[in-house]
Design a protein around this nucleic acid. Structure first.
Lengths: 225, 225
DNA sequence: AACAGGATGTCGGCTGGCTGACTAAGAATA
DNA sequence: TATTCTTAGTCAGCCAGCCGACATCCTGTT
């Protein structure tokens, strides 16, 4: 892969498009690529505690494991998102990243290299800080959701967010390409597979949505209060 | 209040001690002071969506309110901590800050001024980013706690953290000056007053701790696994 | 000392949603 | 086309911990 290919990808990145050509090149030089097929593990916090990843193409899920080996899906991330040690803090939870779309391409920087680049580019620094701040806000929201809402409400708001983020409108319906199992969704909204299945069927009966293994069609978005 | 007094405070701050005298002075000029007694509200996200606060002295709690008016204590913060719009992101949750120690002194910056300072000080920028990253990690931890652990375990780990952070060892015991009600604690660990009271009494019976209205004495820290 | 308002203590009833267990239906491998 | 694996569907049983209700205890105030 030549430099131009990398260049293009970062050039259009929400964070890195602040940089001029020379600066972009500097980043490119420290970039490291990786690809994965669906289901493959891209990253293990345990092994690679010193890298920041950015997603060039595809969708991944971040899974966290606690001491007793329980797992939760912590996040679903897509093109442009960062993961790994992006907080620049050296304490690492036990987590890993799995490709959930067919093909995923990521590139990564060493933490120290990345910090150098940030330190030399105040505009990037500020943007980056805001970006981390945004992730914090998102996490705070999820926390508040978990505290204030019951499972039904959490599923509804999850579906709503998903629809807004990447739904393709067809007629009055919103179609979502579904790469998540009920198990995944359950884990994201912090519930169980059975409960999610049950609620999905309830929504189907109420004619609010339809779903198959690989597509979810939302017929009545506003009913998902 | 003269400049020297402000200067000293920031000079010893975990974040701002990176700056040289001239830079510190710049920050001081944009600083704005505020004091509050126990129970007084220091900050309302609704009114002051454009300021970052730092705690000069004392302890505060951050309370979040959802659409239905439910409240949770989101955080307890102390000297040196930041609150308000510290994520630099303009979306604001409904939250407010209340003094819980007898006297609290805070100072604040306008968001835009603060951003200017950051942009001109790459070292500060990087530190600040890490600091926000650290807050994110902390939030992620709380989330994981809520998902993986039951109320008892959450209370135990809350007490343990508290003890480690600000316990005064006396003999084999750790004494905590308690400025929180059972209600506050319940809200922090995401439970109810009654349950917290019950668990506290359980711990007392097991001789793991003792408590009164304004002091908690932990007799057996290792039992709070 | 009396009072008020908040913080604790205690208890029984109730329920959201988890658990386990088993079946059915798609997808993938061969 | 048979076999195997993963995902989805369904249901009865169960329980942590929430909820309401009320009693009691502190602490600061008058």
């Amino acid at each position: 892969m030549n430099l131009e290919t990398k260049y293009w990808h970062l050039h259009n990145h929400q964070l890195f498009n602040a940089l001029n050509s020379a600066e972009l090149k500097q980043i490119c030089l420290i970039t490291n690529f990786k690809t994965a097929k669906k289901g493959e593990i891209i990253y293990f916090s345990h092994d690679e505690a010193d890298r920041v990843y950015t997603i060039k193409r595809g969708t991944i899920k971040i899974v966290e494991i606690d001491d007793k080996g329980n797992e939760i899906v912590k996040d679903i991330l897509q093109t442009g998102d960062l993961f790994g040690q992006f907080t620049l803090v050296n304490q690492t939870l036990d987590e890993y990243a799995v490709a959930v779309s067919d093909y995923v391409t990521c590139c990564s920087f060493k933490l120290t290299d990345f910090e150098d680049v940030i330190e030399r580019n105040p505009v990037l620094a500020l943007r980056y800080t805001k970006w981390v701040g945004f992730r914090l806000k998102r996490m705070e929201n999820r926390y508040a959701n978990l505290v204030f809402k019951d499972v039904r409400a959490r599923l509804n708001s999850f579906l709503k967010d998903w629809a807004v983020k990447e739904g393709n409108s067809e007629k009055n319906e919103i179609v979502l390409k579904n790469y998540l199992t009920h198990q995944d969704i359950a884990s994201l909204i912090c519930s169980t597979r059975q409960t999610v299945t049950q609620l999905f069927n309830e929504l189907k009966e109420k004619n609010i949505l339809d779903y198959s293994r690989n597509e979810i069609t939302i017929k009545n978005l506003s009913a998902l209060t």
